[in-house]
């Protein structure tokens, strides 16, 4: 826990230094730029969320480094989805702070502002626009000015079309581009939704159960894609499938009853006595 305090202090100092530098005219902390100079891109600190007295998140503290691929596991009700809700602005924390970079306070931003700032989210249940074509789904997700009046006259530029084509190649849906998204298989919808995240060019991708309902082959492809994305993006994967997690994970965080139970490599985590206790249950066999 020493580390977290240190990082937090670091951010505070960082903020002050940013201000000083701005005064010197050397470095301005632009509000829309994500400031990751200290390492982490996402700071979740001492966050508590309760629903009718039940604490879905209990003093949760978690840092995601810029460009890392992090897997988050935990039994049902551990607070994984609530954590994503808090980061994306769907749920407001009762206490605690959530920062994107060192300057953006996510608890003060709305869902669409957070999305525009560069945090993309894939839902647990694949959610696409069923009555639009695959292509249009991507067009709508595309990073652009998303205000109403602009949309009334907006037309795709050649560059934007190219970007969509690129993503269609990446996620293997190029042959299905004219199909209604509602006609895709479960796995294809998952891929489309990941593609919709990609065209947003987010800094952070929050991916909730990306391989649910996928075949083994699709799983391998998804794992490969996510690993490839890490580096240029920070990727946070919530997943139940241990085999899948093992195949992609570099660092794993185990959540339990709304807080972090263990953090480390897959091997470390799997040999952690408390993790075994939680996963195998206190029930004597």
């Amino acid at each position: 826990m020493n580390g977290s305090v240190f990082k937090r202090v670091g951010r505070v100092l960082r903020g002050q230094r940013g201000a000083t530098n701005a005064a010197e005219g050397m470095h301005t902390a632009v509000p829309n730029e994500v400031d990751t100079t200290h390492g982490p891109i996402l700071y979740v600190e001492n966050v508590t969320v309760s629903f009718d007295g039940f604490k879905a998140l209990n003093n949760l503290t978690l840092y995601i480094d810029d460009g890392e691929l992090r897997c988050i596991i935990g039994p049902n009700g551990a607070g994984k989805t609530t954590m994503m809700d808090v980061i994306t602005g769907k749920t407001r924390p009762d206490t605690g702070q959530v920062f994107f970079g060192q300057t953006m306070d996510l608890t003060r931003m709305t869902e669409y502002q957070i999305a525009a700032a560069g945090i993309g989210r894939k839902f647990q249940k694949p959610t696409v626009f069923p009555e639009h074509s695959v292509f249009t789904n991507l067009e709508l997700a595309m990073r652009a000015d998303k205000r109403v009046w602009t949309s009334l006259t907006a037309r795709l530029s050649g560059e934007q079309r190219y970007r969509i084509d690129e993503v269609l190649m990446t996620n293997g849906l190029n042959d299905l581009r004219q199909l209604y998204a509602g006609q895709l298989s479960h796995g294809q919808k998952q891929w489309l939704e990941i593609g919709m995240l990609l065209v947003q060019s987010p800094r952070v991708l929050l991916v909730d159960e990306p391989v649910a309902g996928m075949t083994h082959q699709e799983m391998d492809q998804t794992g490969e894609l996510l690993t490839r994305l890490a580096g240029a993006h920070s990727v946070v994967v919530v997943e139940h499938d241990m085999e899948f997690v093992r195949s992609i994970a570099r660092k794993v965080t185990v959540l339990h009853e709304g807080s972090v139970l263990a953090e480390g490599s897959m091997d470390e985590v799997q040999n952690d006595a408390r993790v075994i206790e939680v996963y195998l249950g206190g029930a004597p066999c």
Binding site: K146, V148, S151, A154
Partner: peptide, 30 residues
């Protein structure tokens, strides 16, 4: 209107408002 991007966003809001919100649309304005 329905052929414009605005129209496509409106249909998207009809079918999956949360999705539209999380890809950056202020759905209530639409």
């Amino acid at each position: 209107v329905v052929c414009s991007k605005l129209g496509r966003v409106v249909v998207a809001v009809r079918d999956a408002e949360d999705r539209a919100r999380f890809i950056g649309y202020k759905t209530e304005s639409y």
